[in-house]
Each structure stands twice: as structure tokens, then as C-alpha cells.
Design a protein around this nucleic acid. Sequence first.
DNA 1: ATAATATATAATTGTATAATGATACGTTTA
DNA 2: TAAACGTATCATTATACAATTATATATTAT
Lengths: 111, 111
Amino acid sequence: MLLTAEITAISLKAKLFRGLSDPSRLSILECLLDGPRNVSEIVAATDLSQPNVSNHLACLRDCGLAAAVQEGRYVYYRISDDRVANLLALADEVLAEVARGVYECTRVTHS
Amino acid sequence: MLLTAEITAISLKAKLFRGLSDPSRLSILECLLDGPRNVSEIVAATDLSQPNVSNHLACLRDCGLAAAVQEGRYVYYRISDDRVANLLALADEVLAEVARGVYECTRVTHS
DNA sequence: ATAATATATAATTGTATAATGATACGTTTA
DNA sequence: TAAACGTATCATTATACAATTATATATTAT
């Protein structure tokens, strides 16, 4: 039996992971690991369409995973917190261990 | 421009995070943080239906996040790797920082 | 063997959301 | 001011997936 506070914490954590659970958003975040980038640079680096990038950036920004600052007609995005980078790095470590299982998992679509 | 190997790695990572991005699965994993539990115990601890729990457990198992061992008519599940627990703990840390942003994010459904 | 219990699977349905194309908005340059 | 550029938003469509109900399978007990 879960308490209300636990349910809230779990929902937040699920949303955080959901923000990280899309290949397009991960591509964007990994691009931002090298430093701040504006939208056009991100589009060029990821081969995603501009509206698609903007949509995902809005999601990342709203979820607090990325931050934006406007400079003239450019908007530069950066990763909001070093721990986000840690999370991505730790995910790599876990993957090194469970990669085979994840790869073979058919309940979540390969993309 | 992303290389094929990067695309694959990113897809795997996205799938790993997607495995962690559902409140039901997180509830199950957090229940398992206390040690191995059989399905009925997980059902009791999470207030989820038995088929729902079994489905999510199958997903967690297929993705290598959880492991199962049958004992008589019970099937005990456990977290497969300590780093999975680390990932959950690190997510808590990140949340402490970005909780407000995640909470206010309306692009991903609150639940 | 039969019943009861524990778990898994299947089919269905509803909802969330990613991608796309069109367009609007804001800023700079000519 | 007009044109060009950079970014954001909207509407639509297609798909993924969580939850539910019903049922199947497997193990233990009577």
C-alpha cells in the first residue's frame, strides 16, 4: 500500500525518465553535453526537423532538463544540471550490463 | 550527423529509460529495492492488478532490469543489477533539483 | 484426480505522444 | 518598412502502450 507522497514522488520520477526515454531527446541532450547550442545547430547535429527539435526542446525545458537563453534571434540551450549528465553516464554503465536484455526486449519498440 | 553506432546506443538508452518511465514499473522496482518479492507480494504492495503486474514484470525482465526465479508455485523477482538501484537513487537527486520544473511540465501527462 | 492457488498470456480498448506540414511570431539586416 | 532568418506553435495522423477482462498454464493440497 503506497502513501500519497510516495505516489507523487514516483510520478515525478516516471516523468523525469520519460523525458529521457525518447531517442530524439537523447540525441539532443548528448549534443548539449558538448556545450550550449542554438536550435539550428541542434537541428544540424541531429538530422531532426526544426519543429520536431523545438517540440522536444520545449519538453526538455518544461521538465527542467534543459535551459534556454535567447541571444538575438538565436536561442541557446544547455543541460540544466550536471546530474543530468551523470544520469546519462550511469545509464551507459547499466546498459553495458543489460544491453543484451534491452536489445532483445520486444515489449518496447525498437527504433 | 549521427553515426549508426551512436543511433543504436541512443535507441538502447531510450529503451532503458522507457522501462523506467512508467509509474507502475517504478512502484514495482522500488518494492524490489527492499529485496526479492513474489508476484502476489508485489500486487499487495502496489495495489496494481495481478495481470498488470505480470505484464510490467515481463517488461522489466525482458529489458534486463529485473530477474525472476521460480520457487514452487511462486515466482520471485529481484532487481538484476545494483546499478539499476543507483540509477533510481541518482534520479532522486536530480529530482530534488528539477522537481519544480518536472511538476509543472504539462507536455507529459501527470498521473 | 480434483480443487485451489499462483502466475502468465491474449484480445480489446482507450489514451498518450512522436512526427509532419503549415504557419505564426520575433529579431535582424537591407 | 520590407525581406530574410531563426524559432515556436498548431492541427493532423499514425503508432505505441497501459489497463482491463477473460482465460490459460502450472504447482500444491485435499
